[in-house]
Amino acid sequence: MKLSSTSLRSFVAVVAAIGLLGTGLAGCGGGGDSQDVSREMNMVTVNWIEGMAFTYVQEQILENQYDMEVDVREVGGGGIAFSSVADGDRDYFNEAWLPTTHQDPWSKAQENADKLGYTYKGTSVGLTVPAYMDVTSASELENYRDELNGEINGIESGAAVNDQTRQILENNGLDDEFSVVASSGPATWQALENAINNEQPIVVTGWYPHWKWGAFDLKYLEGAQTGQSPVFGDPEDVFKIVDNEFTEEFPKEVVCFLKVSEVSDEQIESLMGDFRDRGDMSKREAANQWIENHPEDVNAWTDQAEECAASDGAVETLPDDATFSRDQST
C-alpha cells in the first residue's frame, strides 16, 4: 500500500509520540532508564542480632513485595561491612553507629558511600555489668581485678567498642590491670549468661538496642557510657549506609522503602526476641514469621515508601554529618 504524504507525516508523528511515552515511562525507575534499574541487590550484615534480624526482614519484604532478588552476606565485623559497601562489592548495610562508635570505618568509606536514612534513633554504649555487682563506676573495677581475672569481655577483634573499652581502662589507670578479651558476640553473651546464672562478676562491652537488656537485669558503669565520657560520646543513631550510586541504581519504590523503614524500641525488641527464640527455624523463616505477626508495622513502612515514591525527583540521601539524637541533646 502506498501512503500519501499526509498519511506518512501522521505515521511519523504517532511513532515519535510512542517513543516519547516510552522514554517517560522508563524514567519511573530509581533515577534513569528502566533498562538500567537493577532488581538484584547485595546486602551485608554482621552477627549483631539487632541489625542482622532487621536485614533479613528487609530482604524478605523486598523479595515478596517489591519483586527484588536479594543476596545477604554475613561478615565478621563492622569494618568489613563498611569497606564492602564503599568498594562496591555490597550495596547496603543497615547498622552504622554514628558519629562516634563507627567513626573510623565511616571516615574511610564515606567518600564512596552515603547515609540513606536512619535505622534506629538514640543508642547507648558502655561497660556493662549485672545489677547485683556492687560496683557503680569504671574507677571501682580495680577492686574486682582478681575476681574478674583482669579481663573485660569484648566482642570480635577489631570492633570499635573494644578500642573504646581499652581507652576507658587507660583513662582510669587500669590498662595494666585489665585486658579486653576479643570474642564473637554470641560467645560473649553466653559468658554473660553463664556468669549471671552463677551470680558471678563479669564486665562486658554493651550497647542498646540489644536483647540482653530485656533478658537480664544489667547496668552501665558510671563514667563509662554514652553521655558520660568523651570516649563514648553523646547519644548516637544507627544509619543505613549505601554506595554512591544506590539511589539511581534501584527502583525508586525500593530505595524509598529502605530509606523510610526505621525501627522503634518495641519493634526491635520483638524482632530480636523472635530471632533468639527461633529454634530450628532459619533466619529467613524467623523474618517471615515476624512479618506475618506485625502487618501494621510492615504496612506503615510500605505506605510511607509509596508516598515517597510518588514524590517528584530522586530520593535524597542524608548529609554526611547527619545526626538526630546528638542534635536533640544540645
Rank of each mutant, 00 (worst) to 15 (best):
T6P: 03
S7P: 03
L8I: 13
R9Y: 06
F11T: 11
V12G: 04
A13V: 07
A13W: 05
G19E: 03
T23Q: 08
T23C: 12
A26N: 15
G27M: 15
G27A: 14
G29L: 03
G31W: 00
Q35C: 04
D36I: 02
S38K: 12
M41A: 05
M43A: 08
M43K: 04
T45S: 13
T45H: 03
V46A: 07
V46T: 15
N47A: 08
E50F: 07
E50S: 15
E50L: 03
E50I: 02
G51F: 06
G51R: 02
M52Y: 04
M52K: 11
F54L: 12
T55P: 06
Q60L: 05
I61V: 15
I61T: 08
Q65C: 01
D67F: 03
M68L: 10
D71G: 09
D71H: 10
V72N: 08
V72M: 07
V75M: 07
V75S: 06
G76K: 08
G79Q: 06
S83D: 06
V85E: 01
G88S: 11
G88I: 11
R90Y: 02
F93R: 00
F93G: 00
N94F: 02
N94G: 02
E95K: 04
A96N: 07
H102D: 15
Q103Y: 09
P105C: 03
A109E: 01
A109P: 02
A109Q: 03
Q110N: 12
E111V: 12
N112L: 09
A113M: 06
Y118D: 02
T119D: 04
Y120L: 01
Y120S: 00
G122T: 06
G122Q: 04
T123F: 09
S124C: 07
V125I: 14
L127P: 00
L127K: 01
L127N: 00
V129R: 01
V129F: 03
V129K: 01
V129C: 06
Y132W: 04
Y132L: 05
